[in-house]
């Protein structure tokens, strides 16, 4: 518990602190509730993105399996070497309830047949379908990465805010209230001592006067 002096100015200062802490407590509670609402909104998007990712993964594995089965591993490994350029991922930022979260955008992920690098006459649609399925999977991975990073950042912020709310609610405000009570009681006690002292002084003065 902090040091304090049982004075009226200290009492006023403590009361000011209590008002300030209560306002902060209300604001932080509102922020926490807002963050939780935002978190649940992102959670829904993230759940959908994760489900899509799992579906795309199943499709991509099946398409690759079919391509390897129909064309053989030699042809698939060979076709994979025909593509030189990689997808470009850009990471931007946006502010969500005071939390800086990433915006991930990707270019050059989904390609047309003429952009995949291999010739069209000597290859097959099975390779196209496997390549397309993995391109869609990669796009889904990027989306999930964005949503889950936002979720993680929001969770960290919610946790931090919750700790601050709890600290105010269960530690700082009770302590300040206790200090206020102690100072008030001490001041009242001083008041009573003064009254007693004055009465005592008055009584002694009266006894001296009679003598």
């Amino acid at each position: 518990m902090m040091d304090y002096k049982p004075t009226r100015s200290e009492l006023l200062a403590v009361k000011k602190k209590i008002v300030f802490a209560e306002k902060g407590h209300d604001l932080l509670k509102k922020k926490r509730d807002g963050l939780i609402m935002s978190f649940f909104e992102v959670l829904e998007d993230a759940k959908t993105a994760r489900t899509d990712l799992q579906n795309f993964l199943i499709i991509a594995e099946e398409k690759l399996g079919i391509a390897v089965a129909v064309e053989g591993t030699f042809a698939i490994r060979s076709a994979a070497h025909a593509r030189k350029d990689s997808p470009q991922v850009k990471i931007g930022r946006k502010n969500l309830m005071g939390v800086v979260v990433p915006i991930v955008s990707a270019s050059n992920v989904i390609k047309r047949l003429d952009q995949r690098g291999y010739g069209v006459i000597g290859t097959s649609n099975r390779i196209d379908e496997a390549a397309k399925a993995y391109e869609e999977l990669l796009e889904a991975i990027i989306k999930v990465a964005e949503k889950e990073t936002i979720m993680k950042k929001l969770l960290d912020e919610i946790e931090g805010t919750r700790r601050r709310v709890n600290a105010l609610e269960y530690k700082i405000l009770p302590e300040l209230n206790t200090i206020e009570n102690i100072i008030t009681m001490r001041l009242e006690e001083l008041e009573r001592e003064n009254i007693f002292r004055l009465k005592r002084f008055k009584k002694l003065s009266a006894e001296h006067a009679e003598a």
Binding site: A82, K84, Q115, G117, Y118, G119, I121, G122, T123
Partner: peptide, 12 residues
């Protein structure tokens, strides 16, 4: 920039 022309030239 890509191998498309080379590969299709082989098949043609």
């Amino acid at each position: 920039n890509s191998l498309i022309y080379l590969e299709d030239a082989i098949d043609r």
